[in-house]
């Protein structure tokens, strides 16, 4: 039956190319507000224990309201998986601090120095491990038309990029961070799969450094006004350097944000947050998604009807929870 096993039915060469593909967000600010409020109440009542479920529900809402070609994305992660990950993440962080805790109990300054060393070294290794685990979980649990995303990077490779990079960043007083950021993006994005679609990041550290340098220099000179240009340049550079690869062909993702519209967008967001004491957060988030989705175009030559399922499932949410606890965003 075609409906059940139609893997060989399509021939890519016979299908006419699509018009440019756009994402759109179908949820309203009020819908998102309802989710946030109920999550907040449940998290408060359960003294924080509901947090993993709240996280899963929030992601589910955001993904579930993001539409591409009339089909919604789905986040399949569950609160229980995230809760187990949450507990493991707490245990890992406690273990990292255990020597420091012992030092505090027996009041030993030598042990305290050793503990601090262990904590920071451990944290340095833990961050890439958490990023790796977080990407594997988050992407494996994301589908569109039932085709799973996936992350194929290696933990060891990510550590090899991250640790020397973070040391160099420290030694160069932050200058190297643009190169580290570029290397990480290149590796991470290069290892993301969406069925048989591959992604690439073509940005380089030099160009990013120039954007950052101008940001700091003119930011100070203009008392912060230049930051709007800086953010706009940064986002445009980051997104426009991603390309999508299908059947050996690479197609760039397009994003064009103008300074005027970006300025108005950010100023309105700011006033919405400040004048509602933060209650408008949900509406701001929805506005933000709409703003970028409207200005982003996926390559028109890509054929989204012939994506094949290539990725496997992954249920360990520890990395995702660690990133949540350390407040590190990955995608």
């Amino acid at each position: 039956m075609e409906i059940l096993n139609s893997e060989n039915t399509f021939d890519a060469t016979n299908i006419p190319p699509h018009p440019p593909v756009k994402l759109s967000f179908k949820g309203s600010g009020f819908d998102y507000f309802s989710i946030l409020i109920i999550n907040w109440i449940l998290t408060v009542i359960t003294l924080g224990l509901y947090y993993p479920w709240a996280r899963a529900r929030t992601l589910s809402f955001i993904y579930g309201n993001t539409e591409m070609e009339n089909s919604r994305f789905v986040f399949h992660g569950t609160g229980m998986q995230m809760f187990v990950g949450f507990i493991k993440a707490i245990v890992i962080l406690l273990l990292l601090s255990s020597v420091n805790i012992c030092a505090e109990i027996i009041n030993s300054s030598l042990l305290s120095i050793i503990g601090t060393f262990i904590f920071f070294t451990g944290l340095m290794i833990l961050i890439p491990i958490a990023v790796h685990g977080g990407l594997r979980y988050r992407l494996a649990k994301t589908t569109w038309r039932n085709i799973h995303f996936g992350y194929r990077g290696s933990k060891a490779e990510l550590i090899k990029i991250f640790i020397p990079g973070i040391i160099l960043t420290y030694v160069t007083g932050g200058v190297y961070s643009s190169w580290l950021y570029s290397d990480l993006r290149k590796y991470i994005i290069g290892n993301i799969r969406f069925g048989n679609i591959k992604f690439n990041y073509n940005g380089n550290g030099g160009a990013l450094f120039w954007i950052n340098f101008k940001g700091v220099f003119f930011g100070i000179l203009t008392l912060g006004i230049y930051l709007f240009w800086y953010m706009k340049n940064w986002i445009n550079y980051y997104i426009s350097n991603v390309d999508v690869e299908q059947n050996g062909n690479r197609y760039p993702v397009k994003l064009a944000v103008g300074i005027g519209e970006y300025f108005v967008f950010q100023v309105v967001n700011f006033f919405l947050i400040v004048f509602t004491l933060g209650l408008a957060t949900a509406w701001v988030k929805v506005r933000t998604l709409n703003f970028f989705f409207q200005r982003m175009e996926l390559p028109e030559a890509i054929n989204l009807d012939i994506l094949e399922q290539t990725e496997t499932d992954f249920n360990d949410a520890t990395g995702d929870d660690l990133l949540g606890m350390m407040d590190i965003g990955i995608i």
Binding site: I3, L4, D305
Partner: peptide
């Protein structure tokens, strides 16, 4: 409804 078989991304109307 729309049906996805988990093998290919094509949407089937059912």
């Amino acid at each position: 409804a729309r049906f996805y078989n988990g093998i290919l991304s094509k949407a089937f109307t059912v």
